[in-house]
Design a protein around this nucleic acid. Structure first.
Lengths: 205, 205
DNA sequence: CCCGTGGGCTAACAGTGTTAGCTACGGACA
DNA sequence: TGTCCGTAGCTAACACTGTTAGCCCACGGG
C-alpha cells in the first residue's frame, strides 16, 4: 500500500507535515447516571421518529412521563442532550468505519468507506443532521472522540490532506442527499461512484 | 467546452443520462416593494454582523426603527426573510462562479472554481450557513435559481455526476472550514488543493 | 368632504429553554 | 424508633421567540 503498489494509492501529493493520530485508541464513553442514560435514549428515539423540531424539553419530558423542569435534575440543559446525541453519532460512525477499514483489503477501500458512511447517515438522517449542525460544542465533547471517528479516512488514504478532503466530500454529499438538494431525477448512486472514482488511483486509465 | 476538448477532461465515466440544463439563463429576481428590499438588506447586515441568533424579528425591527409586527406589513414572516437571504446567496455564488468559468481558460478550471467558491463562503460565513441549513424552502425559491447557481460545476467538469460530486465536496469542505471542524493545525490550503487534485485529470502522472 | 389604504402601533397568545422553590419518598445513622 | 438528608418529582414564573388581532393616523383621489 505504499507508493507504486497496488490499488488505492491516491493522488500523489507533496510532503505531508501534520501531527496526526494514526491509530488513536477508542475514547472512553462518559459515565452517566442511569436516568440520564434513559433520557438520552428517549431523546434519540424522539429525534429520529418525530424530527428535530419535536426535540423539545417539554416533549422529551412527556415521552418519559415527566415534566420538563425535572429533566434538569439529571442533565444541565438542552445543549447537554444534544451533545450526548452527537457523541452517539460519532461513536456509531467511528465504529462502523473502523470496522470497514479493518475488514476490507486495500481493494477499493475508498469506495467501501464512502458506502458505509452514506449508509450510516441515511439510516439516521436526523441524528446526522444534528451532528452536522454548525456550532459543535467542541469543549464538551469527549476528548479524542472527534479525531478517532474520522480516523478511518486517514487509514484509507494514507495522506492526511487527501483524507480531510475525502471526509469533507463525503460529509457534503451526505448533507445534500439528506436535504434532497440534488437535481430531481439524479441517480445518487452515480454521484457517489463519481466521488469514489475521483479519490481512487487512476492506474488503469 | 464539448467532450474531447483540451485539458480538464475529468475521470472517465460511463454513459451520462440525465436531463441537465447546460446553459440555463439567469433567472429574474423577484420584484419586491422598496420597503421590503430595505428590510431584506437590513436583515443581511444584521446576519453578517451579529450572527444568526441575532436575526430575530424584534431585533430586525429595531435596526429599522420599527416594531416587529410592522414587518408583517411588508413580508409574510420570518421564513420569507430567510428565503430572500438564501436567494441573495445563490445569486452571488452563481454570478461569481459563472464569471470564473467564463474568464478562465480550461487550464485548472476546477481549481479556480473551488477557490472562488471558498472565497465567497468565507467572506459571508453566516449567509452561507443559512443557505446551507437543511430544509430549504424550495417551493418559495425563484424557479431555476438553484440550478443556475450550481451550473458552473457542470460547465467545468463536462460530466454531470462528477459535477454533482465536485459541488457536494466543495460544499462539505466549506462547511467544515466554517465550523472549524478540521484538525487543529491543519493547513486548509492543502486540503483544498487535495480536493482540486482529486477532481482534475491525471494525464501527467 | 369622505373614504380607503398604507404603514405604523400596542396587546396578546402560544411556544421555547430555564430557574426558584416547594414537597414527598426512601435509605442511613444515632 | 426517630431524625435527617439527598433524590427526584412538582408548580409558578421569567425572558425570549414568531405571529395575529385590532386600533390609529396621515395621505391621496374621487
Amino acid at each position: 500500500m505504499s507508493a507504486a503498489g497496488g490499488a488505492p494509492t491516491p493522488v500523489s501529493a507533496p510532503a505531508p507535515a501534520l501531527p496526526l493520530p494514526r491509530t488513536a485508541p477508542r475514547p472512553e464513553p462518559p459515565v452517566r447516571s442511569s436516568r440520564a442514560t434513559e433520557i438520552v435514549e428517549a431523546a434519540q428515539r424522539l429525534l429520529e421518529t418525530e424530527g428535530a423540531e419535536s426535540l423539545t424539553m417539554r416533549r422529551l419530558g412527556e415521552v418519559l412521563g415527566i415534566r420538563a423542569p425535572s429533566l434538569y435534575k439529571h442533565l444541565p440543559g438542552k445543549p447537554a442532550v444534544e451533545t450526548a446525541l452527537i457523541e452517539t453519532a460519532l461513536w456509531g460512525i467511528g465504529d462502523a468505519l473502523h470496522r470497514v477499514v479493518d475488514a476490507a483489503g486495500p481493494d477499493d477501500v475508498v469506495g467501501r468507506l464512502l458506502a458505509e458512511y452514506r449508509r450510516f447517515a441515511l439510516a439516521r438522517p436526523n441524528l446526522y443532521r444534528l451532528a452536522a449542525a454548525d456550532p459543535i460544542g467542541r469543549a464538551d465533547l469527549t476528548p479524542g472522540l472527534e479525531g478517532w471517528s474520522g480516523e478511518p479516512f486517514y487509514r484509507a488514504t494514507a495522506e492526511p490532506y487527501v483524507a480531510q478532503a475525502l471526509w469533507a466530500a463525503a460529509h457534503g454529499t451526505v448533507l445534500l442527499e439528506l436535504s434532497d438538494r440534488f437535481l430531481p431525477g439524479s441517480d445518487l448512486d452515480r454521484t457517489w461512484a463519481a466521488l469514489a472514482r475521483a479519490f481512487t488511483a487512476h492506474a488503469g486509465d
